[in-house]
Simulated assay, not measured.
Amino acid sequence: MGDFFAEFDAPDTDLTRRAYDHVFATGTAALAGHSVRAYLFGRALGERRGLRPGTDYDDEALLLACLLHDLGLTEGGDGDQRFEVDGADRAASFLRDRGMDEERVRVVWEAIALHTSQGIAHRMRPEIALTHAGSGADVLAFGADALPDGFADRAHAAFPRLDAGRELSDTVVGQIARDPRKAPFGSFPAAMAAEAGVDVRAPRWSDLLARAWEGTA
Rank of each mutant, 00 (worst) to 15 (best):
M1E: 03
D3S: 07
F5P: 01
F5K: 02
F5W: 04
E7H: 09
E7K: 08
F8L: 01
D12E: 15
T13G: 13
T13R: 13
D14V: 14
D14H: 08
D14C: 03
R18Q: 15
A19Q: 05
Y20E: 03
H22L: 13
V23D: 02
A25R: 11
T26H: 02
T28D: 00
A29C: 02
A29E: 12
L31A: 07
R37I: 00
R37A: 01
A38G: 05
L40Y: 04
F41G: 05
L45F: 05
L45P: 07
G46W: 07
E47C: 07
L51V: 12
R52N: 07
P53E: 05
T55P: 00
D56I: 11
D58Y: 08
E60C: 07
L63G: 07
L64P: 09
A65E: 09
C66D: 09
L67V: 07
L67C: 06
L67Y: 06
L68F: 11
L68I: 09
D70G: 10
T74C: 09
T74W: 02
E75F: 01
E75S: 04
E75Q: 06
G76R: 03
G76S: 05
G77M: 08
D78Q: 09
D78P: 01
G79R: 15
G79E: 14
D80M: 07
D80R: 14
Q81A: 13
Q81H: 13
Q81T: 05
R82P: 13
R82L: 14
R82W: 03
F83E: 03
E84M: 10
E84V: 13
V85A: 03
V85I: 15
G87N: 06
D89W: 03
D89T: 09
R90D: 06
R90M: 04
A91T: 05
D97G: 15
M100P: 00
D101W: 01
E102D: 15
E102A: 15
E103R: 13
V105R: 04
R106V: 02
V107F: 04
V107T: 15
V108C: 07
V108G: 06
W109F: 12
E110K: 12
A111Y: 10
H115N: 13
T116K: 04
T116H: 13
G119Q: 02
H122L: 12
H122N: 12
H122G: 11
R123Y: 14
R125W: 01
E127V: 15
H132W: 15
G134E: 05
G136K: 11
A137M: 10
A137I: 10
V139I: 14
V139Y: 03
A141N: 06
F142K: 09
A144L: 02
D145P: 04
D145E: 15
D145Y: 12
A146Q: 13
A146I: 01
L147V: 08
L147Y: 09
P148S: 02
D149P: 04
A152I: 00
A155T: 00
P160I: 00
L168H: 06
S169C: 11
D170R: 00
T171F: 01
V172C: 05
G174Y: 10
G174K: 13
Q175P: 06
I176W: 06
R178I: 09
K182C: 08
K182M: 08
P184C: 07
S187K: 05
P189D: 14
A191H: 11
A191C: 02
M192D: 05
E195N: 02
A202E: 15
A202T: 08
W205L: 14
W205P: 00
D207A: 13
L208Q: 11
L208G: 11
L209Y: 04
